[in-house]
Nucleic acid binder design. Structure first.
Length: 199
DNA sequence: ACGAAGATTGGCT
DNA sequence: GCCAATCTTCGTC
């Protein structure tokens, strides 16, 4: 069952971030469907969060989609090489978002291997935000797209991740955010092989 | 108009 | 473990 818009439009981005664990991220590109179960997320809490692109209410051509109502994709190019996929949350005007950092491949694994130029299934295939975008074929032309669309969406399939199996820790790669870098806003599924290795 | 830095990854030592 | 790849974004001149 596809997650409804109300799921994303809650203002508590930390809760949405936790709730996305165990959900299934789908893409359908040129008739090929690929699916990954979300196992790692990070919450970015809009204006109050120094690590967020929307910190201090920054509104630019890039960040504008973060201010739209929740339930759409925010995708941007990082280091000139990798696409990173975020889910925009909360209501219009509140630029909260959840970065999806890792998924476990579930369907279309052959296609995912091909996109990653790999021959063997290895956690590296989707462990990391840039890696999962490549495996699922996510590129910036999906930026701003509704998660109710026919090319990218998220489903609930009855998988339950219990609170005791959710690990909360500091976010990755945000040292520039000072004290905000220490907030435990990264969530992952305990003992899942596809969770990325933080440096 | 210019330049530094970035929510990363993979290859080489 | 270290470092290059690669290009958009944004602050500053």
């Amino acid at each position: 069952m596809r997650l409804p818009e109300e799921f994303y439009r809650r203002d508590d981005v930390l809760q949405v971030s936790r709730d996305l664990l165990g959900k299934y991220l789908f893409t359908k590109i040129n008739g090929k469907t690929t699916v990954g179960m979300i196992v790692e997320t990070e919450a970015y809490r809009g204006p109050e969060d120094k690590a967020s692109h929307a910190w201090n209410g920054r509104f630019t051509n890039r960040t504008r989609v973060m201010y739209e109502p929740g339930g759409i994709a925010y995708i941007y190019l990082c280091y000139g090489i990798h696409y990173l996929f975020n889910v925009v949350t909360a209501t219009e005007g509140i630029p909260h978002a959840v970065l999806v950092r890792a998924v476990e491949p579930v369907e279309g694994i052959a296609e995912q291997l091909e996109r990653r130029k790999m021959t063997q299934l290895h956690p590296r295939i989707t462990a990391g935000p840039g890696a999962l975008c490549m495996a699922l074929g996510i590129t910036r032309d999906m930026n701003g797209k509704s998660l109710q669309s026919e090319s990218i969406w998220i489903e609930e399939r009855g998988t339950v991740i219990e609170s005791k199996d959710i690990i909360a820790g500091p976010r990755v790669g945000v040292a520039y955010a000072g004290e905000h870098a220490l907030l435990p806003w990264r969530f992952s599924v305990r003992n899942n092989k596809f969770v990325s290795k933080a440096k």
